[in-house]
């Protein structure tokens, strides 16, 4: 580091200080430059977002193309995420799409909104269907509409979705969290709504014949969690999601890149187009919250009680689903 800023003829201590000062000034300058650059980059992203598609001069077409290619698969997003990777800007951009799906595509009919607690922590327990977590996204969106945008629930996704390319970054930014005990405890501790699907992969792997028949609820993890943390459980029945992807049969390919390949009327046949869900009529039924806090955390050690409570919860959600099925006129309306 040069010390040209310091006057001649100073003592060595002062020289040292001056040297240090100039060093610090250089650091500050570099940091300021970096901040300006960050501002420039993120500022530009904000403007592009506001303008939508802007016209690019022909001579900048190549660099623009290169910029787009280098950010392929990762559209604009903020420089900050929360500790589980949810990104405010991605959520903000996804909101109109989710709204469209909720209002127009699946025409979600919501009932039992009065049962939803005012604020978290709270476990929303629902039936699961389909390999892609549309049901989780719709529950999230429904709660967000009922409460506020800051109360956006996190939904749990199965492990294997985290190994699927492209799915993992997007799900994490939209509030998807890998389903496991440690994550649930941390999220509930922070006072979030958490949407869980205790059927797990068994639920996602249901074939069309078994639709709306709830599978075994894992190993009672949800009840154990509720007993240990004392948070209320809100049962939710979703009708319609199980027909959005009618799985005719399951095919287990050699090598197993996925747990199985669901064969639907459209899926392997039409390629990526077959991934699109069918526009069925959806119903979301929220049941009365179950409060297990009076049993106390020591009840979690009673295995028999645990399995009985789990079975009760499953029956409750099954009843909500059955009531929804009874109410609706048809699959499409």
């Amino acid at each position: 580091m040069n010390d040209d800023g310091s006057p001649k003829g100073t003592t060595s201590v002062e020289l040292l200080d001056a040297d240090r000062e100039s060093e610090l000034a250089a650091v500050r300058e570099a940091l300021a430059g970096l901040r300006r650059e960050i501002q420039l980059r993120f500022g530009a992203a904000e403007v592009a977002q506001a303008d939508g598609e802007r016209s690019v001069p022909a001579n900048e077409l190549f660099s623009e193309l290169r910029r787009r290619l280098s950010t392929l698969g990762m559209s604009e997003r903020s420089g900050e995420v929360d500790e589980f990777g949810m990104d405010e800007i991605v959520v903000r951009r996804a909101r109109p799409v989710l709204e469209l799906l909720y209002e127009r595509y699946w025409r979600v009919d919501l009932a039992g909104a009065e049962h939803l607690p005012e604020k978290g922590p709270c476990l929303l327990v629902a039936n699961r269907s389909g390999l892609l977590p549309y049901d989780g996204l719709m529950i999230t969106h429904a709660v967000e509409r009922l409460r506020s945008q800051s109360a956006r629930p996190r939904f749990f996704v199965a492990d294997w979705l985290m190994t699927l390319p492209f799915a993992q970054p997007y799900l994490a930014r939209l509030g998807g969290v890998r389903a496991c005990r440690e994550n649930a405890e941390r999220l509930l501790g922070a006072g979030h709504f958490v949407a869980v699907f205790p059927e797990g992969v068994k639920g996602a792997a249901k074939v069309f014949r078994d639709r709306y028949r709830l599978q075994r609820f894992g190993r009672g993890g949800v009840i154990r969690l509720a007993l240990e943390t004392g948070v209320p459980l809100v049962p939710i029945g979703i009708v319609g999601a199980e027909e959005a992807h009618p799985v005719l049969f399951k095919w287990t390919p050699p090598g197993r890149p996925l747990p199985f390949v669901p064969v639907t009327p459209t899926f392997p046949l039409l390629g990526p187009l077959g991934v699109l869900p069918l526009p069925t009529k959806w119903m979301i039924r929220i049941g009365a919250p179950v409060d297990l806090s009076e049993l106390g955390p020591q009840a979690a050690r009673d295995e028999l009680l645990l399995s009985r409570l789990t079975e009760d919860l499953r029956a409750e959600i099954q009843a909500l689903v059955d009531a929804g099925l009874h109410e609706r006129e048809g699959v499409w309306s």
Partner: peptide, 22 residues
């Protein structure tokens, strides 16, 4: 403290990213 996605780190540094299939 804090976590950030890899792509955000690289963007903060102004790096060019080649995303290649595994």
């Amino acid at each position: 403290r804090g976590v950030l996605p890899v792509s955000t780190l690289l963007r903060l540094a102004g790096k060019q990213i080649w995303r290649l299939p595994g």
